[in-house]
């Protein structure tokens, strides 16, 4: 992404002007906010890893055992991912 790099350079050169302490360049602030959210959202978009979904499922229903229900009926074929 050459564009991102260019924006970064532009911002850098602008901020090289010594500013008053505490007076934050709004352009830099928006850039920082954008990068922070990009980094964060990249993880959020990965959703819930299986290990956590299973952890909560197990702890949720210690007494219910779905594989023993439905006598003579349909097997839970969708559940073949267990170990």
């Amino acid at each position: 992404m050459g564009k991102m790099e260019r924006v970064m350079k532009e911002v850098k050169s602008k901020s090289a002007v010594p500013g008053k302490p505490g007076g934050l360049n709004p352009e830099i602030q928006s850039r920082i906010g954008h990068q922070l959210r990009a980094m964060y959202d990249d993880v959020v978009r990965q959703g819930v890893p299986d290990r956590f979904a299973e952890l909560i499922r197990k702890l949720d229903a210690p007494d219910a055992n779905p594989s023993q229900i439905e006598p003579g009926g349909e097997h839970t074929a969708k559940n073949d991912g267990r170990d």
């Binding site: 980094m39 964060y40 959202d41 990249d42 993880v43 959020v44 978009r45 990965q46 959703g47 819930v48 890893p49 956590f52 979904a53 909560i56 949720d60």
Partner: peptide
């Protein structure tokens, strides 16, 4: 509540990694 906890997992991970 269980569903709500699960729904918080992605942002918990992002926070933990940050």
């Amino acid at each position: 509540l269980r569903d709500d906890i699960l729904a918080s997992v992605p942002s918990l991970r992002a926070f933990a990694i940050s």
